[in-house]
Simulated assay, not measured.
Amino acid sequence: MKLTFFDNDIPNFGDEVNRTMWGHFTPPDFFDQDESELFIAIGSILYDDYPAAARKIVAGSGYAGYSNAPNVHDGTWEILFVRGPQTAEVLGIDPSLAVTDSAVLLRATPLPDPAPNIGAAFMPHFDSLQRGDWAKVCKMAGITFIDPRDPVDRIIAQIRGADVVVTEAMHGAIVSDAMRTPWVSVLPIHKAHRFKWLDWARSVEIDYQPKRLWPSSTREALTFFTGHHGIGARTKRVLDSAPTRPFTWAIEHIAAQKLQNLVKQTPQLSDDAVIERVTDRAVTAIETFVKSRRSGDKPIRAAE
């Protein structure tokens, strides 16, 4: 059985959690590279292009519109649980399978100690770092920059030590909420990353109230105002050239000011009882599945 997640050239916190977390719930030899059976884990990875003959086990993944919705009713899918109600609705499955994002399982694992002196922090979407300059803007604003490309334990320690986390990265909010650190969501600069937020928020009974994020560079401004990716070589050459530097300076200073305002917004946090309930449900689903495999049983739960 192959542990399956978005394995990008650029490390990304939400995806990288898969590398470290699942070993706390499975025996050492549970996963291998056999692609005839896929354990579809943390991430917006419910795509329509998985091998038709492969058995597909869904463990808290979500649908985000990055592809057409898969047909999970063809007999090859076992749904342990999905990220939220929107995913369940799109897939046409039993609403009771909408538990929450499986990163909540971090609550049931050993955690690094909170990092000291974090204060207010900001985590951008890793995609934004291809076009933005958030480390510089955070420094200007006097706010801790949480780099989603950093090692998982470092990021968790920073989140645990923060007073509040402003986050463009959905898993910045998911893990902050799981760690009981108040968070402020901001709309992702690129619109493609927005659908999935409401899916998760509904799973933990949060009224999703994202704020506006100001771009941190001319290239990010292009994406913000036009929806273009802003990562091509020609775009980089033009927008990073000398004539644009006054605009870049202005954008950076506005972004720093806006970020300072965002950390003063009323943060969000799910109810303690809700996060305990969804954690227990997720742990039970994984433990039941792992136990069934240890006994040699391979049931397929029909997606209803």
Rank of each mutant, 00 (worst) to 15 (best):
D153I: 00
Y208K: 01
D150C: 10
W183R: 04
W134T: 05
D199V: 12
L269K: 01
V166I: 14
E205P: 00
D133P: 07
P267M: 05
V186L: 06
E220G: 11
D127F: 06
L262E: 11
V164C: 07
D133T: 13
M179Q: 13
E168M: 09
P215K: 04
I189A: 03
P246T: 11
I174S: 01
A250Q: 10
P151K: 04
F247M: 14
A141N: 05
I159K: 02
E168V: 10
E168K: 07
W249Q: 09
P246H: 05
V137I: 13
L222A: 14
G161H: 00
I143A: 04
R160V: 08
V204T: 09
H190Q: 12
H190Y: 15
R202C: 00
W197M: 09
D133V: 14
I143H: 05
W249N: 13
F145Y: 15
W197C: 06
A250E: 08
I206F: 01
D207M: 13
D199I: 06
K264A: 14
P188I: 09
I189R: 03
L262S: 09
G172F: 00
S203W: 10
L222T: 01
L129M: 15
L213T: 01
K191V: 07
W249H: 08
Q209C: 12
G161D: 08
Q268V: 11
L198S: 09
M123R: 04
R245P: 06
N261Q: 14
D153N: 10
C138V: 09
R245K: 14
D127T: 14
R194K: 11
T167P: 05
V164G: 06
I146Y: 02
A157I: 08
P182L: 02
D207T: 14
K211P: 00
V238S: 01
A162K: 08
T218S: 14
W214A: 15
T144E: 10
A169P: 10
W183C: 08
Q130R: 14
A242G: 03
P148A: 02
D147Q: 12
H229W: 03
I155A: 02
R245E: 12
L262R: 03
R237Q: 13
T244L: 15
G172N: 06
P246K: 02
F195A: 13
K236A: 15
G227W: 04
